[in-house]
């Protein structure tokens, strides 16, 4: 019980919720439509509950270890043991990037994000950060929308420049 990892607990609960929702929702469908959700879902739920409880119940832990043909002590590689504060910072960058892209679009946010990341995270001198972010953005634009005609999201802000900044039609969720 002492070594309950927060990640294990969070993931376990998350997966339980996901699997449980689908299993319960499947009950409203006909026989053939719920057979696969139930056949797969019930054992999955059982395993998830067992993993959840095994942290508190050593005997179950031993049974699971035997069923796993090895120890339940996760063979984690040392890569994923960074401090949580550092992970929150990086995840924060990514979340901020995705939301900013959603709202303001690629054309504006890509150079800004690169500049900010180079400046803050990589501690690059401002001039170099600015130049490199502009160069990289230009290369991306030349390659994607310009040459290949791949559509680029302009963001949901009111239309400022057609197709470039603002005015995207948000698809219905």
């Amino acid at each position: 019980m002492k070594n309950v990892q927060p990640a294990v607990l969070i993931v376990n609960i998350l997966l339980l919720v996901l699997a449980g929702t689908i299993v319960i929702a499947s009950l409203q469908y006909g026989f053939r439509q719920r057979i696969v959700p139930l056949v797969i879902g019930i054992p999955t739920l059982a395993m998830l509950v067992a993993i959840l409880l095994s942290d508190f119940w050593p005997r179950l832990n031993r049974i699971l270890a035997m069923a796993s043909l090895g120890s339940l002590q996760d063979a984690l590689n040392e890569d994923v043991t960074a401090s949580w504060s550092r992970i929150f910072v990086i995840a924060g960058w990514l979340v901020a990037l995705s939301i900013a892209l959603f709202v303001f679009g690629f054309y504006v946010i890509v150079p800004l994000f690169l500049f900010a990341f180079f400046l803050v995270e990589a501690k690059t001198p401002a001039v170099i950060a600015l130049l490199s972010s502009l160069v990289i953005s230009t290369v991306l634009y030349v390659a994607f929308p310009y040459t290949l005609g791949i559509e680029i999201w302009p963001g949901i802000t009111p239309k400022v420049m057609h197709g470039v900044f603002g005015g995207g039609l948000i698809p219905v969720l």
């Binding site: 690059t124 490199s132 160069v135 290369v139 030349v142 390659a143 310009y146 040459t147």
Partner: peptide, 25 residues
């Protein structure tokens, strides 16, 4: 700090490839 030219070189490479595709297109 000392390997900046590498990034720039890669960007240049990507640009060359991009224009090549454009030319073929």
């Amino acid at each position: 700090g000392t390997r900046w030219w590498r990034l720039l070189l890669m960007a240049a490479l990507a640009a060359v490839l991009g224009t090549l595709i454009a030319a073929c297109g």
